[in-house]
């Protein structure tokens, strides 16, 4: 029996210490995911709590076939999507319109940012863009899957993603240029 199997068995038996251990093992990774999908730390923490509550309630459904972290991650992403859908202040921003039309750039910038800085840039995207970008670029969901998850068409998902990507690439380039400028001034 692996460590994870033992941990899960203990959690299912109601062992609070095991449950806390499971939480502590994955809390950091999952908080980072929640942070990417939301606009504030408070919201991220709300999603994290809801996600972990679902994890513990559905733990008996985990078959052990895949990696436990990946299974928890899927639950966390679903919790984030539900939260965005249910939270009013995200609703207006979730409407996927063409307000943010930008020319699609073919050049991919080199990212010289920290993970936190990149996550902060992703969080600057409008909610609809942010969600689709996270789902496709980071989580690796296909546009067909995203369309099913968000109740939109595949083409919408594809076009919104490309716009989000262009916007983010522009910001990354600008962020990098600004940082270089600052360094030059400092030098």
């Amino acid at each position: 029996m692996t460590d994870n199997s033992r941990l899960i068995a203990a959690c299912l038996a109601g062992d609070v210490a095991a449950q806390e251990q499971l939480y502590k093992t994955f809390a950091g990774q999952m908080m980072a995911i929640c942070y990417r999908y939301t606009k504030s730390v408070t919201d991220a923490q709300d999603v994290l709590q809801e996600g972990f509550i679902n994890v513990f309630r559905c733990l008996h459904q985990y078959k052990g076939g895949g990696e436990l972290g990946a299974w928890i991650r899927r639950i966390m992403v679903n919790a984030a999507l539900n939260y965005l859908k249910q939270t009013k202040r995200y609703q207006g921003d979730m409407v996927l319109t063409d307000d943010y039309m930008h020319p699609v750039s073919g050049d991919d910038p080199v990212i010289n940012l920290s993970a936190k800085e990149l996550a902060d840039l992703i969080r600057q995207l409008p909610s609809g863009y942010q969600t689709i970008f996270n789902l496709h670029a980071v989580e690796g969901y296909s546009h067909v899957e995203i369309a099913g998850m968000m109740g939109i068409s595949e083409s919408t998902s594809r076009s919104q993603y490309m716009r989000a990507r262009t916007l983010l690439a522009t910001w990354i380039t600008k962020y990098d240029a600004d940082a270089t400028k600052k360094m030059n001034y400092a030098g």
């Binding site: 809390a27 950091g28 990774q29 908080m31 980072a32 942070y35 990417r36 730390v41 991220a44 923490q45 994290l48 991919d108 910038p109 080199v110 990212i111 940012l113 920290s114 993970a115 936190k116 990149l118 996550a119 670029a137 980071v138 690796g140 990507r165 690439a169």
Partner: peptide, 19 residues
């Protein structure tokens, strides 16, 4: 894609501690 690859590499090790 290059951009996605970079983002995934960066994000794979990204962690934040909750309250």
């Amino acid at each position: 894609n290059q951009l996605e690859k970079q983002i995934q590499d960066l994000m794979s090790g990204f962690e934040l501690q909750p309250g």
